[in-house]
């Protein structure tokens, strides 16, 4: 197989597109788990966001209203998760699993009830979607060899939400490490008792953290249904929430490494699409499924602690109960 610069650029460009929802969800996961709340429901929130965005965009014709609806939906689900696992100290994993299952059913049920199209929402016109935008000067320098091509084909030409994902990574980093809220949030995920004795409400902090997670997954869901695609189809998040969870762990609960993990996992996905049925010299036909399973296998290997060590926030998954 010959790999031209063009091929490479198209794989990398696909990588960016495929990584975007992962990045939103992984940042959501970081906020949640850094505050000590395990969030398996990233998957469900992405899916719910995708459905809400597509539905509202279809009805109103506005991508922005779709985005708003998705964000509200993500926050609402976060509140459900918080009500169960923060207020009532319930099992965070059980709560997350419940949300995922509810969403995977409810999106289809509501989809059929509202749009009568076997769970699909109406196909959106491009006016009701986030379409790719050309960055300034893209046309002008497209003829410049190499750098011009990189700029036009790789950096320019994505939709707004892709760029927003990058902004979110920076913002996440800034909030976590440069603000008072971030300091407290990181502390509550490590030692909630220290936060409590410092006179700060553990529960309120955790609620705020998971609400931010709801916003981010809402944007991620929006991306899936009305930017990457033109309608909602059932179970369209297809495990991306779990891959994001894996990316978060793989990135050791840190924004930048988590983003890089999202790229790695997005790249594996892009590669597996590209390599479908292609015979690679010496290796023969690479099983696509092996590449697709890559994120999960890599995460297990990392968790096993044989290469590096993924250390979760200490209080992650533990409801805070004042003990005697």
């Amino acid at each position: 197989m010959d790999l031209s610069l063009n091929d490479l650029l198209s794989i990398l460009s696909a990588t960016i597109r495929l990584s975007t929802p992962l990045i939103f969800a992984a940042m959501a996961g970081i906020f949640s788990e850094r505050s000590g709340v395990v969030d398996i429901s990233l998957e469900g929130k992405l899916l719910a966001g995708a459905f809400a965005a597509a539905s509202v965009a279809a009805v109103t014709g506005s991508a922005w209203l779709g985005l708003g609806a998705a964000i509200l939906t993500g926050m609402a689900l976060s509140l459900v998760h918080g009500f169960a696992s923060i207020t009532h100290k319930g099992d965070q994993v059980v709560s997350g699993v419940a949300i995922n299952i509810i969403v995977s059913g409810l999106t289809v049920v509501l989809g059929i009830a509202w749009f009568h199209r076997a769970g699909q929402t109406p196909t959106l016109p491009s006016s009701a979607r986030f379409m790719s935008i050309k960055l300034p000067g893209a046309d002008a320098i497209s003829q410049v060899p190499f750098l011009g091509e990189i700029y036009t084909k790789l950096i320019s030409g994505h939709n707004l939400l892709v760029y927003l994902a990058f902004v979110c990574v920076g913002l996440t980093y800034w909030i976590l490490f440069k603000t008072r809220f971030g300091l407290r949030l990181r502390a509550v995920g490590e030692n909630p008792k220290a936060v409590d004795t410092a006179g700060i409400s553990v529960d309120f902090l955790r609620y705020r953290a998971i609400l931010i997670g709801g916003i981010l997954t809402g944007i991620g869901g929006t991306y899936i249904s009305i930017a990457q695609n033109a309608s909602f189809t059932r179970d369209m998040s297809a495990g991306q929430g779990y891959i994001a969870l894996a990316a978060m762990i793989f990135g050791k609960w840190k924004p930048t490494p988590a983003m890089l993990s999202c790229f790695l996992f997005g790249f594996l996905e892009a590669l597996s699409m590209r390599l479908q049925g292609v015979v690679v010299p010496f290796l023969g036909e690479v099983p696509v499924q092996l590449i697709q399973a890559g994120p999960y296998i890599l995460t297990v290997v990392l968790l096993a602690g044989f290469v590096g060590r993924a250390i979760a926030p200490k209080a992650d998954g533990v409801p805070y109960i004042k003990e005697r």
Binding site: H88, V94, N100, I101, I102, G105, L106, V108, V109, A113
Partner: peptide, 24 residues
């Protein structure tokens, strides 16, 4: 109007109420 996926919704709600909110 009610698709068979309603079953998943009910299932998820049961997990939520008898699992995570078991002692509410």
């Amino acid at each position: 109007a009610i698709s068979k996926e309603m079953v998943f919704v009910i299932q998820g709600l049961i997990i939520l109420f008898s699992g995570a909110l078991a002692y509410m």
